[in-house]
Amino acid sequence: MAYNETRVTVAGIVASKVVRTVVGTGYSRAAFRVHTRERRFDRDREEWFDGSTMFLMVTCWRDLADNVHACLDKGDPVLVHGKLRIRETAENGVTSQHIDIEATAVGPNLVACTARPSRTRDAPAVVAPREEDEHALSPPLVAPGAVPAPRAAEPAPKEVPAISH
């Protein structure tokens, strides 16, 4: 991470087709626009209303680009996390600023949709520890020079009687 780098997370809707290209270095790049709209609750009227709206360009690289292109379509609810970039363009003597996100993570927004993850060939499977194994992951806290107390023996599993029909 760079010094004074601005990281953002945006919840929105894919507002354009996801376009994937291969750049001169051989890396994949995917780009799409994301639309986000602020929603506010007016307590006096007891109703929600739309606030500011914003469109941002999102750029993804390498495996993220390939996966975004394969999984997302216009209209999909997404969460985008990445580096905020300000890009300036000059046209007919007028300079304009555009806000872009160079994404490091993109995923479906599960508030508005469901998803079933499917690992890519390079992504390792991560197995969450069982709750009862949690104590085995961290060493017990012991003062320097002290002898750690032995762990209590775990109770033997209870036998379940066979059920006959």
Score class of each variant (00 low, 15 high):
K158G: 04
A153Q: 10
L141I: 08
A152N: 11
V126F: 08
R116K: 15
D122F: 11
A128E: 11
G145Y: 07
L137E: 02
P124N: 09
H135S: 04
E91S: 14
G145H: 07
A156S: 05
Q97T: 10
L137S: 02
G93E: 06
T114D: 15
S118A: 11
R121M: 07
E102W: 05
A103S: 02
T120A: 08
P108I: 01
L110D: 10
T95Y: 13
G145R: 07
A115S: 15
N109E: 07
A152V: 09
I99Q: 05
A112Q: 11
S138A: 12
P148A: 01
V127K: 06
A105L: 06
A90S: 15
S138L: 13
P148R: 02
A136D: 09
V142G: 04
D133T: 02
A115Q: 12
L141W: 09
A136L: 13
V126P: 00
P144N: 07
A105M: 07
H135D: 05
T114G: 14
L141V: 10
L137W: 02
I99M: 08
E88Q: 15
R151G: 00
A156L: 04
E132H: 03
E154K: 03
P157M: 02
L141Y: 08
P117H: 09
A146C: 08
A152W: 05
A103H: 01
T114E: 15
A152K: 12
P155E: 03
V127R: 07
S96N: 15
T89R: 13
V94M: 12
A125E: 14
L137Y: 05
A103T: 00
I101F: 01
E88H: 15
V126W: 05
H98F: 09
H98E: 10
A152E: 14
P140F: 01
R119Y: 14
G145I: 05
N109R: 04
P129G: 05
V126S: 03
G107S: 05
V94W: 11
P150V: 00
T89I: 09
P124E: 10
D122H: 11
P108Q: 03
P140R: 03
A125C: 12
T120D: 07
T89Y: 13
P148E: 02
P108F: 14
A128Q: 08
A115I: 06
R151F: 00
A143N: 08
